[in-house]
């Protein structure tokens, strides 16, 4: 089943299928290791609900839900 990273709930795991963002944001996601095939674990949301914290490639990354919506995941 496919869904975006935005819809992930804490502790859910998945693999990146595609990054649909544009320009600078897309490049930034790629540079931080959010590339197809990367395994991601959603950790938690910030106290105000946004941004979210994920674990990938052995480190912690935070991004906004808007940006997470551009990461298509395979669960």
């Amino acid at each position: 089943m496919d869904k975006t990273l935005k819809e992930f709930i804490p502790n859910e795991r998945g693999t990146v299928k595609k990054v649909t963002a544009e320009g600078k944001i897309k490049r930034r996601l790629f540079d931080m290791g959010v590339t197809p095939g990367a395994e991601i674990i959603m950790r938690k949301a910030a106290p105000l609900g946004d941004p979210i914290e994920i674990t990938l490639r052995g480190y912690e990354l935070s991004l906004r839900r808007d940006e997470a919506a551009a990461v298509l995941m395979e669960v």
Partner: peptide, 8 residues
């Protein structure tokens, strides 16, 4: 954008 590493 807000895509930021949370360092150890």
């Amino acid at each position: 954008p807000f895509i930021m590493e949370l360092p150890t």
